[in-house]
């Protein structure tokens, strides 16, 4: 099967599009989740704290802690997982502090994102990169 110069260019162009597409698509999965949570409102940086190890030796159980004073809910996302959702903490009237610890799974080295919904309706966001070395020896 012979291709003319024009056809080759078209195929090359299509391949380039197909290759570059997945990256924005992944990022938008996180953005989509955030939009769903915020309802499209502006999200300020900071105001929510995310404590996660810099290097996690075992991606199957990575301890994290989220806290945001005065938040009514905190959503945690893992940008590099097959599905970005991790957990959403909704704090009730008897919450002693807007803080929670849990253990999560991370598919690989990636950003963990925490978005907090404040009592006044504003939103805050922070993120942290966690290096995952599954089965490694701490490298």
């Amino acid at each position: 099967m012979d291709f003319t110069r024009r056809e080759t260019l078209v195929i090359g162009g299509a391949t380039a599009v197909a290759v570059t597409l997945p990256m924005p698509a992944m990022a938008s999965a996180v953005d989509e989740k955030i939009n769903e949570f915020t309802g499209g409102a502006d999200v300020a940086e900071g105001g929510v704290e995310l404590d996660a190890p810099e290097i996690a030796e075992n991606g199957n159980t990575v301890p994290i802690e989220v806290s945001a004073e005065g938040a009514s809910a905190i959503m945690v996302l893992a940008a590099g997982n097959p599905t970005p959702g991790v957990a959403t903490f909704n704090f009730g009237p008897l919450a002693g502090a807007q803080r929670a610890k849990t253990r999560i799974r991370l598919a690989g080295t990636q950003d963990v994102v925490a978005v907090a919904k404040m009592a006044d309706g504003s939103f805050a966001k922070t993120q942290k990169t966690v290096k995952v070395t599954i089965g490694g020896c701490g490298g």
Binding site: T83, N90, I104, R105
Partner: peptide, 17 residues
């Protein structure tokens, strides 16, 4: 009265803590 209500996804580890 609610203290905490968590919505969980598959990224929560085995034996949720």
């Amino acid at each position: 009265e609610t203290v905490l209500d968590v919505e969980m996804h598959p990224a929560i580890s085995t034996n949720p803590y």
